[in-house]
Lab assay of single mutants.
Amino acid sequence: NITAAIYDEIQQEMKRAKVSQALFAKVAANKSQGWLCELLRWKENPSPENRTLWENLCTIRRFLNLPQHERDVIY
């Protein structure tokens, strides 16, 4: 289940792992930094009809659900 909290989790994970938006986007969703920036802007007004947005957030959720040491190896 995806909630608005995922946006904060993304920010916290980037700080914790000391990774850039570009690197996080690449490893978590195989996307660009610009894409992640755009995604983070949706926090203010996520559209329930935007299926692509929710699919991408689900992809990021799966990455964030990995154990921390696995995420660190991927970075």
Rank of each mutant, 00 (worst) to 15 (best):
K26V: 04
I2V: 01
L66F: 12
L53A: 04
K18S: 06
Y75S: 00
R62C: 15
Q33E: 15
V19R: 05
L53S: 12
I10T: 03
N45G: 12
Q11G: 06
G34P: 01
E38M: 07
K26D: 11
G34T: 12
L57P: 00
P67F: 03
L53G: 13
I10D: 00
K18F: 03
R41H: 01
D8K: 08
S20I: 03
A22P: 15
L36M: 15
R51L: 12
F63R: 00
W42T: 04
A29G: 10
I6M: 05
S20K: 06
C58Y: 04
A29K: 02
E38N: 07
L66D: 06
Q68H: 12
A5F: 15
K31R: 04
R51E: 11
M14Y: 15
D72Q: 07
I10R: 00
I74E: 13
V19L: 11
C37E: 09
A28I: 03
E49H: 01
R62H: 13
I2E: 00
L39S: 09
Q11A: 13
K43D: 02
Y7S: 04
L36E: 01
V27D: 01
R62A: 07
M14K: 05
G34I: 11
N30Y: 08
E38Q: 05
Y75E: 01
A29Y: 10
R16K: 15
R16P: 00
C37W: 13
S20G: 13
R62F: 11
N65I: 14
V73G: 15
Q33K: 12
N30S: 12
K15Q: 13
N30Q: 07
I74L: 09
I10L: 11
T59D: 06
Q11L: 06
E70N: 06
N50D: 13
S20N: 02
P46W: 11
C58N: 11
Q11K: 03
K15T: 12
L39R: 11
E55W: 10
L36R: 00
Q11D: 04
V19S: 13
T52M: 11
E44F: 15
C37I: 12
N45V: 08
S20H: 00
M14W: 09
Q33N: 05
C37Q: 13
Q68G: 11
V73H: 15
W54F: 03
N45T: 08
E55L: 08
W42R: 12
I74P: 04
P67G: 07
A29L: 04
Q12S: 08
L64V: 03
L57W: 04
A22R: 08
A4Q: 15
W54I: 05
K18G: 14
K26L: 05
E13L: 00
L66G: 09
E44L: 04
E13W: 00
L53K: 09
A17I: 03
R62E: 11
A4M: 15
E70A: 02
R51Q: 11
G34R: 10
L23A: 05
C37K: 13
P46M: 08
C58T: 12
K15D: 03
P48K: 02
K18R: 09
E38G: 14
E44A: 14
W35G: 14
Q21L: 07
D8Y: 10
I6Q: 02
R61A: 13
R41P: 02
M14I: 08
E55T: 12
K31P: 00
L57G: 01
L66M: 13
I2M: 15
A17K: 14
R16V: 09
